[in-house]
């Protein structure tokens, strides 16, 4: 079984978000980048399935050279090899084309990724890759088990879940509680240094969307405090002043 796990390089979850002076780009200065937390579910689950049933796990990132430390981290967690498509991930369609091209060339059976990236929050790439390859997509998946070429997944729907069965090849976008994401151990970090990381150039048509400007949400006016002994007063304010109940 050949697993392809797509990872995104995103600002750490505690990052205070700021932009360049023209508001066109995220301000990377002083920011720690991590593997997208949703992608960690995909990566760990692929490694678990490989360990249980055999196969290989290839990790794929569309990004410039500064994403390599996190690609190495994925190798340290247990992926066998890595591919980096040497390009800024312009939009979801651009990224999906790169993934689809590599998945097709490499004959991957299972293509996994996180539900969405925590920076762009697109929740789009999974479906685009599935459609480009003409294979099913299960998104967002909370559980993934495999028996031979058949996968059983739990797909979250509003208010419940669907149990879905698909045959390889397929795409799934992953979220909790699929597995407990692993962190690298010392042995993993040592072996990751020598695992193959192939760099390829992008292909396809380019992007279909473009960010014109970023903006921060308006700041809150400041909190109105109500003494605990008059807690009931809050309910009156919510009705008469805020008009939300």
């Amino acid at each position: 079984m050949k697993f392809l796990v797509c990872i995104s390089n995103v600002p750490d979850t505690t990052t205070k978000i700021t932009f360049t002076p023209d508001n066109k780009e995220f301000n990377k200065a002083g920011v720690q980048f991590v593997i997208n937390p949703w992608d960690e579910y995909a990566l760990t689950r692929a490694i678990e399935l490989k360990e249980a049933q055999g196969g290989t796990v290839t990790v794929l990132n569309v990004g410039e050279a500064d994403t390599e430390p996190n690609i190495r981290k994925a190798l340290a967690i247990g992926a066998d090899d890595a591919i980096r498509v040497n390009a800024f991930p312009k939009d979801a369609f651009f990224v999906a084309q790169q993934i689809a091209a590599i998945a097709k060339d490499g004959g991957y059976d299972v293509i996994l990724m996180g539900k969405e990236s925590i920076d762009y929050n697109g929740f789009q790439v999974h479906g685009m890759v599935g459609e480009l390859l003409g294979i099913p997509t299960v998104a967002p998946a909370m559980k993934l088990d495999m028996s031979g070429n058949t996968a059983t997944l739990e797909r979250e729907i509003e208010g419940g879940k669907e149990i879905v069965e698909v045959s390889t090849p397929f795409v799934a976008s992953c979220q909790q509680p699929m597995c407990e994401p692993r962190i690298p151990n010392m042995r993993g970090i040592m072996t990751a240094r020598t695992k193959p990381l192939k760099v390829v150039e992008p292909t396809g048509e380019g992007a279909r969307t473009e960010v014109a400007a970023y903006a921060l949400p308006p700041a809150k006016q400041g909190v109105k405090l109500i003494p605990a002994e008059n807690a009931g007063e809050l309910i009156k304010l919510l009705r008469n002043e805020a008009k939300v109940i």
């Binding site: 995220f26 929050n121 970023y214 921060l216 949400p217």
Partner: peptide, 9 residues
């Protein structure tokens, strides 16, 4: 965008 921390046009 940025998980509710920002907006993008």
């Amino acid at each position: 965008a940025f998980s509710g921390k920002a907006f993008a046009d």
